[in-house]
Design a protein around this nucleic acid. Structure first.
Lengths: 223, 223
DNA sequence: AATGATTAATTAAGGTTTAATTATGTAACG
DNA sequence: CGTTACATAATTAAACCTTAATTAATCATT
């Protein structure tokens, strides 16, 4: 649920294309070169990486090796057709899959699904439990401290996202993207704050704790 | 009972034809291309898939491989006669059966039966018991809290569906499809609500409980 | 340390959407 | 002919989301 994808790609057009399409289903992080790609990888801990081989400064192959050296995160590589690096090399270096440009965006999506499925298939992904809070996305039942909560759709969504990665900071923009499926430009929009407030109130009524903490100027986090 | 079939087919005429015929006996889900087919497969977890080989963007063979990679769900493939992919290829890729267009709709139904038979052989259960409610789908007898209920056909249908998977949320659309065998577009249609209301009243008269809870904006669930 | 600016949190009001109930009409059936 | 089931329509009720207004907290600058 709400998995994170890091896109390492220097071409702005492809970046935006990928963002537009994939942000509907995933939480997208972007890097324009290899160095910041590696840095972001360490910060964000994405569930999947899309890596362009043709990068300024450090080439994609090196990025691939560096990341693979630290993690088994699925990596899908984008190559130009005339690139000398062979498929075999790529896979040996740790790529999970590859596509040659120009690629079909739907095919990319399908391949992403395949890579991510491996991760999520095993666990019964519709129940989240954290501390004394459990949340069932099939029945929409939410229990906190043995009290059943009565959450609205937005509130449930919000809690689901926060609990999927406890302690991780979510920016308001991200939350907006995930819950409302649209970007938010108007930072004066207070809607999200209201929902956070309501969720806090209901959680507090059940647990006498405030689990949702604000990181001033950045976002919120479930503690 | 009420098994789910996912139809992945881009041709609208064939889609509707299949829907009209099959929705009498099964719960139908539709996808117009491979990507949404794969997505729906993961969400819906159908009991059987009907897959057209000729799809826009991603071809059917890829969809077949991707799905088969994750599940043993029976897949029946529809091919055009001039299609190059051989029977052998299809079966090797994991198809359970195939039909060449134009196909006979009755033959398709027969083949569906065959595929589903394997699954459902064991469960020949026509009595559902949950909490203090029991329901016999052969005699239509319904007993709640030792009181025999006098339910109409629609009410019985509804209760049967809800009780077949307690706690699971059913969307109004689903319920409509199962009970009325037709899609419902007009969300202002209030018929279902009336039946829910009546069922609630009768259940309450017998048990003094309201088991059917609404999930606002989503559907209902038997608790 | 004080001040103003920015961001966050709360509260309340309004309007919209969805749900539930009640009432009325219609067709099927014994 | 009267009963029943169902659909349709009208009404009432409830839940929800957004907006706006207000208060509180935090930051940046001096």
């Amino acid at each position: 649920m709400h998995q994170k994808i890091l896109i390492i790609e220097d071409n702005n057009d492809i970046q935006s294309l990928l963002f537009d399409v994939l942000s509907k289903n995933y939480l997208i992080y972007k890097a324009l070169d290899g160095i910041s790609g590696i840095n972001q990888f360490n910060e964000v801990k994405p569930n999947l990486i899309i890596l362009d081989l043709m990068l300024p400064q450090i080439n994609g192959e090196s990025v691939l090796k560096i990341i693979r050296n630290q993690s088994n995160v699925p990596i899908i590589v984008l190559t130009a057709i005339q690139n000398k690096t062979t498929t075999v090399d790529l896979l040996r270096d740790g790529a999970n899959d590859y596509l040659t440009k120009p690629f079909d965006i739907d095919e990319l999506q399908a391949r992403i699904e395949v890579q991510l499925r491996k991760e999520t298939n095993s666990e019964d992904n519709h129940i989240i439990i954290y501390k004394n809070i459990s949340l069932n996305s099939q029945t929409h039942q939410t229990i906190a401290n043995n009290h059943e909560l009565n959450l609205s759709k937005k509130e449930f969504n919000l809690l689901e996202i926060l609990l999927s990665h406890p302690k991780q900071i979510y920016e308001k923009e991200q939350l907006f993207q995930i819950i409302w499926h649209e970007e938010y430009f108007d930072s004066s929009d207070n809607t999200l704050n209201v929902h956070i407030s309501n969720l806090r109130r209901k959680l507090f009524a059940a647990t006498a704790h405030n689990y949702i903490v604000s990181i001033w100027g950045i976002g919120i986090r479930f503690d």
